[in-house]
Nucleic acid binder design. Sequence first.
DNA 1: GTACGCATCAATGCATACATTATTTCAAAT
DNA 2: ATTTGAAATAATGTATGCATTGATGCGTAC
Lengths: 223, 223
Amino acid sequence: MTDEKHPSAGAKAYDAIKAMILDGRLKPSASYLETELADQIRVSRTPVREAALRLEREGLVVVRPRRGMQVLPVSTADMAEIYQLLTVLEPLAAELAARRGLSEAELEAMERATQKMQDALVDGDLVSWAEADDMFHALLVQASGNRRLVEATGRYRTQVHRARMATLTMRPCPSSSTEDHRAVLHCLRSGDAEGARKIHAAHRAAAGELLIALLAKHSLDNL
Amino acid sequence: MTDEKHPSAGAKAYDAIKAMILDGRLKPSASYLETELADQIRVSRTPVREAALRLEREGLVVVRPRRGMQVLPVSTADMAEIYQLLTVLEPLAAELAARRGLSEAELEAMERATQKMQDALVDGDLVSWAEADDMFHALLVQASGNRRLVEATGRYRTQVHRARMATLTMRPCPSSSTEDHRAVLHCLRSGDAEGARKIHAAHRAAAGELLIALLAKHSLDNL
DNA sequence: GTACGCATCAATGCATACATTATTTCAAAT
DNA sequence: ATTTGAAATAATGTATGCATTGATGCGTAC
């Protein structure tokens, strides 16, 4: 998402379209013409086109010559690809973060996210749980200090969003995630880079396998 | 690079600008106005702007409000970031490729690239050597079968291009690279995923350290 | 002499107009 | 009836014009 409150029409178009994709207002496999979207967002075609190109590069849509912009359905194969990457990238982040030594503020933010996951689980609020989980991962990656790592994982996390949301209610109570996060936090505090990496790698690998198993089980191949 | 011969002005602008950056016609830290570039490439500002935005997303330039498009100098810190990523991404590719089992054609292409490296070394042709080395890595990543991995590593390889070229003549004769590549190829042939990953990880880690040491030694921080 | 402010200028960002091209439909012929 | 071709329509890709805005330079005042 673009940070500020929209100064430019370009950012406005990008944010609007991305939000529509993520919350399902733009359906996968359906096509949307530049003109339609421009009218809807109240900007001209130029910024819409700009946004479409950007979203295409981010892997959320394909722009097809005369058929408009199509929201890419996410397949099991895509999720497999992405989790292969996240399973090496996020553990790297954990390792780097541990090595760097984090400020108390950073650690506290991650602890708050973890606590929020636990609370959400008690309330049975799966959406909050997922948000807090995402937040933890985002903070961890940011703590690595590697900007490109932040950018890359952010992109993949966005692509996974729909699949995670779709499988949220099908998965067994994800209580072990909280423990994993706490274990990683412990390693980060004590500067145990190797431990952080290994624990987080196992955490990510398990998450990937679980997600893919769920998608396969429910034949969800066009989210 | 965009595959085909330019049907669209957008692709033409992108290819032209990217080529100018990579071969140094556009100098880092210098600024170039949309209009200048448009005149030079003989297209209007629109496709130039499109290309600039794309190149910005790819991390090659920054577009600054009234100062034009600035080619990003690559710093030692950038190289450190990128090598951290390549050091986990490419070994993953090696592992996946070994696991998948490659066709004879794929293996042969990689062998040809390795041979070309060796020949170039004999001839003392460092530019060919670098090209062949790049080719090997590109083929390896493609062999992983993970499209996102191909895209990501390709992007980083582009960003590293200038630094590699600058340090090409300073580095000690890189004869061990050929051996490393052969060792990886051996693992790929025999399906030794773990071996391929480890050897390639060591290869990449060494390359990163070497590059960064060279940059530091020669105080090259604004390529 | 220096600093601050205003005015001018230029570059971008956006909108719109235009041209190119693909797709679809309709008609005609086999 | 089906297939092929041609024409029309519609959407993209590109160019250009316009307005906004930031930067720069000059002048004046302290």
